[in-house]
C-alpha cells in the first residue's frame, strides 16, 4: 500500500518550471531515494511535500488523505517530518532541548498549566527529557546530551536534526542530503542509521548525492532532471539505465 502518493505535481517560479508534472508513489516502510543533478528540483519537491511551498498544480496524498498545500505544522500532525539541507538548528537552545521541541505535538502545550508549572507539566517534561536522551543515543549522540547546540560539530548537528525529526514520531521522514559534508566513516554511520529507522517501520524519502549511500539503502530510486522524471526503479535498474548515466551518473572510467 502506498503511504505517499504524488500526482501531476508541478511548481513554477515565474517562467521556471522547477517541478514539472511529476507522479510517483512511496510504499509504506520503504526507503525512497531521489537523485539528480543540482537544480533538478529535488529540494523544491521536498518543500512541496512538507508544505513550505504550495504547488502550482497537482495533488499530494498521504495515507489516503489529500494534504496538498497544507501548512508545515499541520503536516507534522499528519506524521510527516524532515531534516534540512542547510541546517536549521535551534542554536539558542541545548542539543537536548532541540530534540525536546521535536516532541511538541505530543506535549501539553496549553499556556496556563505551563505558566503555573502544574504537576502534569513537570511530569510531561521529565518524560520528554528521557525520551529525548533516548533518541540522541539512538542516533549516536549520547556524548552530546549536555551540549549547547551552537557548540556542536557539523556532523553531529546533521544527526541532531534526524533525532529532532524522529521525536515528532513521524510515519514519513524526509532527509535532505543527510551525508553532505560528512567523511566516509560518518556517511557509513548515517547509512546504518537510515536502515535502522526504516527497519523500525518509518518510511523514508531521501535526497542525496553520495551514491554509495543511495545504493546502500534504497528500495526505489527516482531520478529527476530539469524538474521531470528521468527514470524510476530499484538500484540495479537505475545504475544501468543509459539515460541516467548520460544525465547524471557518468560512464565508469574503463568504458570511456
Amino acid at each position: 500500500m502506498s503511504l505517499l502518493k504524488v500526482e501531476n505535481l508541478a511548481k513554477n517560479f515565474g517562467g521556471v518550471k522547477a517541478v514539472n508534472v511529476l507522479s510517483f508513489e512511496v510504499e509504506a516502510g520503504s526507503v525512497f531515494s531521489i537523485i539528480g543533478p543540482n537544480g533538478a528540483g529535488k529540494t523544491t519537491l521536498f518543500n512541496l511535500i512538507t508544505g513550505i511551498y504550495a504547488p502550482t498544480n497537482g495533488t499530494v496524498t498521504f495515507d489516503n488523505q489529500n494534504v496538498t498545500g497544507l501548512a508545515s505544522h499541520v503536516l507534522a500532525r499528519h506524521g510527516i517530518s524532515r531534516s534540512f539541507q542547510n541546517l536549521q538548528i535551534f542554536d539558542n537552545m541545548t542539543a537536548l532541548e532541540n530534540v525536546m521541541v521535536g516532541q511538541h505535538l505530543h506535549m501539553d502545550t496549553r499556556f496556563l498549566p505551563s505558566f503555573l508549572r502544574l504537576p502534569g507539566v513537570v511530569k510531561g517534561d521529565a518524560r520528554c527529557r528521557k525520551h529525548a536522551i533516548h533518541l540522541m543515543e539512538y542516533v549516536g549522540l549520547g556524548d552530546y546530551v549536555r551540549a549547547e547546540a551552537d557548540a556542536m560539530p557539523y556532523g553531529a548537528l546533521k544527526r541532531l536534526e534526524i533525532a529532532r525529526a524522529l521525536a515528532s514520531k513521524p510515519r514519513l521522514l524526509l532527509l535532505d542530503e543527510p551525508a553532505a559534508g560528512l567523511n566516509p566513516a560518518e556517511t557509513k554511520a548515517i547509512n546504518n542509521l537510515i536502515l535502522r529507522i526504516a527497519a523500525d517501520g518509518i518510511s523514508i524519502v531521501l535526497v542525496e548525492h553520495d551514491m554509495h549511500l543511495i545504493w546502500g539503502v534504497s528500495d526505489q530510486v527516482l531520478v529527476l532532471d530539469h524538474g521531470s522524471m528521468l527514470a524510476i526503479g530499484d538500484s540495479n535498474e537505475i545504475r544501468n539505465n543509459k539515460a541516467v548515466i548520460a544525465a547524471y551518473l557518468g560512464q565508469p572510467v574503463g568504458e570511456l
Partner: peptide, 24 residues
C-alpha cells in the same frame, strides 16, 4: 522551561524548523 517556552525559543532559532516540528 515548559513545552510552550521551548516552542517560543525554537521559533527564535529557526521558524522553518519550528513549523516542521508542528509549532504553529
Amino acid at each position: 522551561d515548559s513545552p510552550v517556552g521551548r516552542a517560543l525559543r525554537s521559533l527564535h532559532g529557526s521558524e522553518l524548523a519550528a513549523q516542521t516540528m508542528g509549532v504553529d
